[in-house]
C-alpha cells in the first residue's frame, strides 16, 4: 500500500470511529489513538524523510491536511458531546419532595418567639397543671371574687389543681425564678370549661409577655406591640389602646390593630370598626409584684397576652378553630 493509500485508509477509519463515538472519554482515547505520541501519524514524518523532494512535499501536505481534518473532527465531536440535547416538557409536575411539616401552630409560635427575642425577650416554659394560687390568687384574683368568672376553669378532680386557664399564670413563677429585671414570654396550651364551636375550643394556645425593670412603661409596651404586629403581619398596622380590665394589671388595656382585611375601611371581620381586638395588656399590678416578692416601689413593668390561634386564623384566613386543632394532614401539609 502506498503512503497515500495508507493516509486515505486512516482517514476513512477515523471518520467512521469519530462519528460513532458516544462519550468524552472515548473521544479523548480516539484522539490519542490517531494523534498521540505513539500513533502511526506521530511517527509518519520519519517515514517520509527518505522520499524525493517532490513526493515528500505532496505526501507531506496530504499528511498535514489529514492531521487538520482529524483535529477538526475531534473539535466538532467534542462540541457536540458537550452540548446536552434532551427533550423535556417543563409542564411535567416534577418529582414529589417528601418531607414532614411542622404544624402551623408550632411554626407560628416559633415565628413569634423569633420576633420577641429580637425585641429583648427571653423564652420560658411553664406547667400546664397548676394550683389556684398561680392561676388566680397571685394575680389578684381572690377566691369568691366575680373576676374568677372571667375564666371558666377546668379542674382536676378534688379541685386541688387546675388546668391553667391562661398563660398569665407564669408571671409570678418566672419573676421568682429569674428575679428582676426580666423580659420574658411564654406560649402554650391553656384550658377552659367552654363549649366548642367555630371560634372557641376548650384547649387552645396563648402567649403572654412580661417586662419588669425600674422603668418599663406603657410607652415601651407600645413600642413592643407595634413592632411585633408589624413584623408578624409584615405590614405597618396601626395599634390602638383602649381601657380594659384584668385584675393583674393597672392600668388595664385592650389592644386593637388595624383590620388586615379591609385596611381600616371597615368590613364584616372588624364589624365595620376598622380595628380588630387582639390582645389584653397593662402595667403589672403592684399586687402581682408583691406576690413575687419584688420591691414594687422600685420596680414596675408591663405585661400582655394574646390568643395564638386567633393570630394564625387572621393571618391565614382560617375560619374554624377546630381545623387548626385537628391533626388533619390535609391541613398540616398546606403550610
Amino acid at each position: 500500500m502506498s503512503l497515500e493509500e495508507t493516509l486515505n485508509k486512516i482517514w476513512q477509519e477515523a471518520e467512521k470511529e469519530f462519528t460513532s463515538v458516544k462519550s468524552l472519554s472515548e473521544l479523548e482515547n480516539l484522539l490519542i489513538k490517531y494523534l498521540g505520541r505513539k500513533s502511526y501519524l506521530a511517527n509518519f514524518p520519519s517515514l517520509i524523510k527518505k522520499l524525493e523532494i517532490e513526493e515528500k512535499r505532496k505526501i507531506g501536505s496530504l499528511y498535514n491536511e489529514l492531521k487538520r481534518k482529524i483535529e477538526n473532527l475531534y473539535r466538532q465531536k467534542k462540541e457536540f458531546l458537550l452540548e446536552t440535547n434532551i427533550k423535556f416538557d417543563f409542564e411535567h409536575p416534577g418529582r414529589e419532595i417528601k418531607v414532614g411539616k411542622e404544624h402551623l401552630i408550632s411554626q407560628t409560635i416559633n415565628k413569634i418567639f423569633d420576633i420577641f427575642i429580637q425585641l429583648g425577650f427571653s423564652v420560658v416554659d411553664y406547667a400546664q397543671i397548676v394550683d389556684e394560687k398561680e392561676n388566680f390568687d397571685y394575680l389578684n384574683i381572690p377566691p369568691h371574687h366575680p373576676a374568677r368568672d372571667l375564666w371558666d376553669t377546668l379542674w382536676v378532680k378534688n379541685r386541688e389543681l387546675l388546668f391553667r386557664t391562661h398563660t398569665s399564670c407564669f408571671q409570678v413563677p418566672v419573676l421568682k425564678k429569674y428575679g428582676v429585671p426580666i423580659r420574658a414570654i411564654i406560649a402554650g396550651k391553656v384550658f377552659r370549661y367552654e363549649a366548642i364551636d367555630k371560634t372557641h375550643d376548650f384547649e387552645f394556645y396563648q402567649l403572654d409577655g412580661i417586662s419588669i425593670s425600674e422603668n418599663s412603661n406603657l410607652g415601651h409596651l407600645k413600642y413592643v406591640v407595634e413592632k411585633f404586629f408589624e413584623r408578624f403581619f409584615k405590614e405597618n398596622l396601626p395599634v390602638r389602646f383602649r381601657p380594659g380590665y384584668f385584675p393583674f394589671v393597672e392600668p388595664g388595656l385592650e389592644i386593637d390593630i388595624g383590620c388586615i382585611f379591609c385596611k381600616q375601611r371597615g368590613c364584616i371581620i372588624c364589624k365595620k370598626t376598622g380595628f380588630i381586638e387582639v390582645a389584653g395588656a397593662g402595667m403589672v399590678h403592684d399586687f402581682v409584684l408583691k406576690s413575687a416578692g419584688i420591691d414594687y416601689k422600685k420596680y414596675q413593668g408591663y405585661a400582655f397576652g394574646f390568643g395564638v390561634d386567633r393570630l394564625i386564623m387572621l393571618e391565614h384566613g382560617i375560619d374554624d378553630i377546630r381545623i387548626l386543632h385537628s391533626s388533619d394532614l390535609r391541613f398540616i401539609r398546606q403550610f
Binding site: S122, N215, G219, K222
Partner: peptide, 10 residues
C-alpha cells in the same frame, strides 16, 4: 402614648 424603645434588660 408614644412608642419608646427600651434596650434589653439582661
Amino acid at each position: 402614648i408614644k412608642p419608646i424603645y427600651e434596650s434589653p434588660l439582661r
